[in-house]
Structures are given as C-alpha cells and as structure tokens.
Design a protein around this nucleic acid. Sequence first.
RNA 1: GCUGGAAUCGUCUAGUGGCAAUGACAAGAGACUGUAAAUCUCUCGGCUUCGGCCUUCGUAGGUUCGAGUCCUACUUCCAGCA
Length: 392
Amino acid sequence: MLTKNTLLTGPAERTIFTIAKREGLARVGTIHTAHGDIKTPAFVGAATKATVKSLTMSEMRSLGSQAILANTYHLILQPGTDLIKEAGGLAEFNSWHGPTFTDSGGFQIFSLPDVKISENGVKFRSVLSGDKFELTPEGSMQAQWSIGADIHMAFDHLAKSENYSDMKHAMERTHRWLARCVDEHNRIAHRRISSTGSAERMLPYPQYLYAVVQGGTFLDLRAESAQFCNSVNPDGFGIGGVFTADGMAEMLQTVCPLLDEYKPRHLLGMGQEPRDLFIGAENGCDTFDCVGPTRMARNGTLYTYDGRINIKNAKFKHDFTPLMSDCYCECCKNYTRAYLHHLFKADEITAKVLASIHNEHFVVHVVDQIRASLMNGDFSEYKDSFLTRYYK
RNA sequence: GCUGGAAUCGUCUAGUGGCAAUGACAAGAGACUGUAAAUCUCUCGGCUUCGGCCUUCGUAGGUUCGAGUCCUACUUCCAGCA
C-alpha cells in the first residue's frame, strides 16, 4: 500500500489516505479518521448546522452515508463552538459518531450580503442577532478545533467577481490566509499534544487540515493555487470556487496532477447534478458535498435514473408506482408517487423527510457505484450508461 | 312580516364615479451546486398581428361622457325585532 504523510495532526506521522486502485486521474481509496474510515470516492452529506436538514443521523446511516460536513460560520453563531467541544465534538454532539468535515466559513464571504473583507479577515453581521463579528484564518482554525471535525477546511476567500484581476487577488489572499491557517493549526495541534491542562486543551483526537485551491475558471491561477497549496504540506485538499460543470474537467486536470497524490481531495459544493460527480471522480476528486440533493428534495424535485422529476406536478396524482422501482431507499421501498405527491400538496413534514431520504440516498449510491465501477474496471461503461439515460 | 346589512376571478378579500379590478390561499409550472433556502420566480376571464379587442363584480332596468362603486325593482343570504 502506497502511503506518505508528514502531518502535524498527531504525535507521530499518520496515514490519512491509502490508495487501493488508480484509473487515470481517478482513485479508489480510504480516508482514515479518528471517527472511522471513508471509502472513496464518497458523497458527504451537507449538515451545515450540525444536522442534515429533515433527516436524523440514524436515517443518514441507513441510507449509506459515510460522512457529514458542517459549517463553522453557522456553528459559531449557534450554538457556539465551545458548546460542541463541551459535548465531546461534533460527531458526539449530533450522534453521528462517524467521520466529519467542517467548512471554514469562507463560503459565506461569497454567499452572504454585507460582508467586509480585509487582510485580517472578514466582518459578518449575524443573521440571527444582527451582531457584528469577525472571522479570521486563526479564528476559523480555533473554531474548527473546538467543533472537533476530523477534517477542517482552510479559511479561504471566494471571489464574487469572475474578473481575472479580482480572482487573482482573492486567490493570493487565500494563499496568505492559508499560511496563517497552517501556522495556527499546527500551533493548536502541538498545544493539544503537549498541553498539561492549560485553557487551550483541545479534543483528544487528531484533526486534519485541507488547503483550499482557488483560481476560478482561470487555469493558470488554478495551477498556481494548486502548487501553493501543495507546498504548505496540508493533510489534504479542498477544491473550491466551482459553481458549474462547465470547464470543471479541464480545471481538475490542471489542478489534481499538481497535488500530492497520497492526500485526499474534496470537491467543495459540487454534486447537485449527477454529471458533476462523474466528472469529479474521473478527474481525481475523492469526496464531494452538496446542499442540492436535500434542498431540491424539500422543494419537491426528486432524482430518478431517467432525470429529475417534480413530484408536485399534477401528472403524479394518480401514479401508484414507486418513485423508482429499482431504488432500495426507505422511500422507494415503501411509498408511491401518488402518496409523495399528496404529502407535498398537503405540505406535510414527511414529504420533505421521504424526499430527502431518497435524494440523499441517490447521490450517495451513485458515488458508491462510481467507486465500485472503478474497482471493477468498468467505470466508463457505467458512466456512459448512467449519463445517457439520465440526460436523454 | 318589519328594520338594518351583504352579494366581486375555485375560496376568502380590497375597492365609495375612470377598473380586467387588490391581497391571501388554492391551482398550474419553473429554479435551486462548500444552505440567511420548509426558499424564490412566473402564470392564474377569453382572444391577440402584443397595439389592443371582447366579456366580466347576484338579476333586470336607470342616472352619467364613463357604474363593481349612485338610483329603482327583484332574487338570495345574514343580523335584530315580531
């Protein structure tokens, strides 16, 4: 087994990622964390506020999820990161008990209005209280250590503009912040190891830091960012700032060969369209997260192998067949389209629960099948047959 | 029976002389990619060569340049009194 790692996340060199098989840029592997292994490629459930909306962790386990991703920004606002540390960490707090990721809060620079960005960090206004607060690279690292996810993301700057100059400046700031993130992460990791009971005693297990590659749609910036991220020797990589599948393959083909192959790569935020998962895995990404599947589910849009459907459409009122006859999720095994249609029209909570179970199962299962096909050596056949049917 | 009040798009509702007519719900459809998302957008009398045209506010008349809006009668409903 080929492994290599030089982390500052534990008392000795640790192995975060093992590779079982390669096919082109794609890899089949295993990410090892204190809360268990993740067999990759894998889809990670978006649990922004420490919950996958409308689903219990038990349901997430049942539908086959291997890991979840929470958001530092949201957990700072509520319930506060110290509370999660007090609970024993994110995985204990929400009863997931498996591998966890945290996003750094960097995405909120992009998604929230009225943010003030400076070299030091970002000033936000709390959506909940209206209070102003500042998030810095150091603050994000400290918060993520308190939350205690197994895998942390570096605090990055997502440009709101597609302009080259703006993108370059955001990328360069991301790099400067990355250096600060690494310093702070290592400082906390050492302190955790050597602590004799000081105020900064952290949760007693290794936690990893991913550097986040930026650069937008510009391949030269992406290459520069990949090289810089690789140079700071993180535990793994996030690939951020991707909003569409257009150009994604070329971007990943530029970025991934420049990253240490023995470290895992997470494609941040992509996976609403099944096509994104194939392109991502094929070009070297190991994990994915996306809010799309559960958000669409809550709004009545459901995946099938023949494309998306809107279960609220009148044509499903008398459709007493399963949502998908060849799906083994709790929704498809037990309920009909007519029943789901009724639940949505009646605005029952169960509509969102069942739909979320199905959509989340669907994307988790698709990536599991990608993994299986890579292992079996028939990835291209699986990809072609899936995408042809889905997008026909 | 008498005295008041009320009838508007599937439902409730705004409207007190310039109105195809307000808002909500319902209905029909669409969007959603590191979640300010249980959210948001569009359509919702008919036709249209997209400028309009036609038919609409219980029914029938009337006043007026013009009526959902004012007047008269009728119909139905509500409240109070018998």
